[in-house]
Nucleic acid binder design. Structure first.
Lengths: 254, 254
DNA sequence: CAGTGGTCTAGACCACGGA
DNA sequence: CCGTGGTCTAGACCACTGG
């Protein structure tokens, strides 16, 4: 079988193109098995390595999974919008729902939320110090969370606070506080007056890929929220969201 | 030379780990040359293909560039935050600055904006039809933009409107309109009362990678804005932003 | 057990681009 | 020119997993 693309593209890209088309048109349905490396190498009369290059290309694009021995590779399901962060800002309620209310939103979607929390005192990483407007290396309280949905890792989050006002508060307690961070900060005399959200994307580093159990070719959304009280920034919260399971959503008045 | 990691990790991952550390610690500075495949294969006593696997892994993580013949591979510069989309919502002005005012924001940063626009009538793609609340396949006006900054491709955008009210308006004219889309829609009797922004990330497909001139390992942000008038959705705008050059930012009151 | 993908070797030819 | 990465071949051994 010859590739559809007769041009001067490399062989493995022609094969990858055929497979992309087959996936796009549903010939290879989501969750279905992808042709094996041997299969492709015979059908296209190429070496196994060349067929493999086509498949790894698709895996890096996130279209198919890596193989697991006898199970082979599968067309990745596009469970889009499995999770949604929503920033609602109704003219009446002025309620700001951020990345904190994971548990709430997850439960509302009929799924089981869970989280592990570690609390520690750390030297401020550069990008945190900058945003919290403190010297780099300053001691900060760091709350590290791993969010789980239905038992599977879902997101990584880190929140940073100045040590000075976190002392003796639930912020230093490695247990969830249920009323939301904004409410807690307000009680501590740091009512949030505005927030700045920075959103970027990149490939996960190996540690993140491991903890989040994401396969090859799945980029992450990095969401950084800076909360400002009257006197300045009081909180920097970063959230790492696997791109295949998450969507950020902002609902705003026009 | 042996890899630092003596564990049971694959050889190419040990080599990749060493290189990651060298980059992180500045031994291999941004913009500097990465050891060649032959170099690594000799230093670690592995085949060229194994050394190559380490390098392609780093390229897919976005840490180094692909090679260009004699130039070799370079440590990728982290020109973070080169471009920023900002959604300001001041209590006073209620000005909503979206992804439309590219030209404005680019010029404000002392860089030269440009864009090419194509306008056409297309059958509504599924995800657009759904959000615009029209039947799939319905004829829509599509405005496709390629944004350029300092002559280099910067972002891809597509906006969709119902054919019924785009007829005889600047929406069908393949030239920029300078007052902003919201203002234009308001003049046409479709004042925007709210917007919904959906933000996801994924790897680019080959066509996008080509048009945006992005290398391996650079994911994209996909930003979809739905604009609602009193009577319902009037506009669906998608923007594809290369992750290495863009940041989304939302400034919101607390 | 049998077949899968993961890893690895040792070669080869080519287009490209810096010196 | 000549070394670079890009592509490709034809093998090999292994761990894992489904039937």
């Amino acid at each position: 079988m010859a590739a559809v693309d007769g041009g001067d593209n490399p062989l493995y890209q022609q094969i990858a193109g055929d497979l992309r088309a087959a996936i796009r048109e549903g010939v290879l349905p989501p969750g279905g098995k992808v042709p094996t490396e041997m299969d492709l190498s015979q059908r296209y009369s190429v070496s196994r390595n060349t067929a493999r290059m086509a498949l790894t290309a698709l895996a890096h694009e996130g279209l198919i999974t890596a193989g697991r021995a006898r199970a082979g590779r599968l067309v990745r399901r596009r469970e889009q919008l499995v999770w949604t962060h929503r920033v609602s800002l109704s003219a009446v309620g002025r309620r700001l729902a951020g990345t904190d209310d994971f548990a709430e939103q997850t439960a509302a979607q009929g799924r089981v939320p869970d989280q592990t929390i570690e609390v520690g005192i750390v030297a401020a990483p550069g990008f945190v110090a900058e945003r919290l407007e403190v010297p780099a290396g300053e001691s900060l309280v760091a709350r590290r969370r791993l969010y789980l949905v239905d038992g599977a890792p879902s997101a990584l989050a880190e929140s940073y606070y100045a040590l000075s006002f976190a002392q003796g508060t639930p912020l230093l307690d490695p247990r969830p506080y249920h009323r939301g961070t904004a409410a807690l900060l307000a009680e501590l005399g740091h009512k949030t007056v505005r927030t700045a959200d920075e959103i970027t994307t990149r490939m996960p580093d190996p540690a993140e890929a491991l903890r989040l159990e994401i396969g090859h070719g799945v980029p992450v959304l990095a969401h950084v929220r800076i909360s400002y009280a009257e006197r300045g920034p009081v909180r920097v919260a970063t959230t790492i969201l696997p791109g295949d399971r998450h969507q950020l959503r902002y609902d705003l008045p026009g």
